[in-house]
Design a protein around this nucleic acid. Structure first.
Ligand SMILES: [Mn+2]
Ligand SMILES: [Mn+2]
Ligand SMILES: [Zn+2]
Ligand SMILES: [Zn+2]
Lengths: 149, 149
DNA sequence: GAGATGTTTTGAATCATTCTAAATGGAGAA
DNA sequence: TTCTCCATTTAGAATGATTCAAAACATCTC
């Protein structure tokens, strides 16, 4: 599944990196394209194996470096559940995560502004949130009626 | 700060353990009392050091064992933020956590039923949550106006 | 080309957590 | 009482994700 990045995505990558004085490299491009190709919240190891199909010499440390860089640029988000390996998500819209107990798969769940507002409203005065994380854990009925959005 | 457990709390411990065929031991009692004494979401290492003030021979492995046992019994909850060390919380009421970026402290935030309902409502049909986790990260204005509830 | 700078690579180090196997201790049977 | 059984505790080794350190590479400028 060798996948190329679209012109639009490459520009997005280029500009986001440029904002913090960093450059597009072949490794970064491959890692980014892996994230865009299958938005299933892969772990570092999964990204590593997928990226190696395109670039066999790529090292694990570089995958860690790239992902960290992208998170720093705001290109992707980290997703943690309990103490499992960190997963990565290129969906920048506000959303929650649902981890299916049966399959281990992580689904994106849209988080509407009014729900975010209701969450903010429970904070006593003086609490100023920079980030809000919502995650569900349970069973999701088979039928892949809900592709990772 | 050697702390004794109340009769009420000891019964709670005894009955919860009994439900899964387990017994109160001196170690379990000390670890449980540490959690009740200061409800500040301590890490395993913090529990370990506090418990050792009362029981100097206590081992780290036992602290891990006790905490795992208590989580299994539903006596306490695990609290994770990103990939930091797991923290433990004896507050069984539905609540969210706010991690203060400045101090690292974790505060309990009450989660009213209507907010929980609004969170459930964003799930598409077929998603059946067993657990919902909400966590905030940001600044909390000094004044300890909000003791861990 | 030489120097500067940022990036990648390898392998070692870190650190929370789990595992293993040996010791301990209490409850009940003999 | 002494013996047996069984859960629990203990010390230390193992695990596994992540980070770190230092050398190799690339690219750019002078
Ligand atoms: Mn692998
Ligand atoms: Mn320590
Ligand atoms: Zn996502
Ligand atoms: Zn709590």
């Amino acid at each position: 599944m060798i996948q190329n990045i679209s012109e639009h995505d490459r520009e997005n990558l280029q500009e986001s990196l440029a904002k913090s004085g960093q450059k597009v490299t072949p490794q970064r491009e491959v890692v980014f394209s892996v994230l865009l190709a299958k938005r299933d919240h892969p772990t570092v190891d999964e990204v590593f194996h997928r990226a190696r199909e395109t670039m066999p010499g790529l090292s694990l440390a570089t995958v860690y470096n790239c992902l960290q860089t992208f998170v720093g640029c705001g290109l992707i988000r980290q997703v943690n559940h309990e103490r499992e390996s960190t997963r990565y998500c290129p969906n920048l819209a506000p959303h929650a995560h649902f981890r299916d107990a049966a399959t281990g798969r992580v689904h994106d769940i849209e988080l509407p502004p009014e729900v975010i507002q209701s969450l903010r409203s429970i904070l006593p005065p003086g609490f100023d949130p920079e980030a809000i994380e919502v995650s569900f854990h349970g069973r999701a009925l088979a039928g892949d009626a809900h592709p990772t959005l």
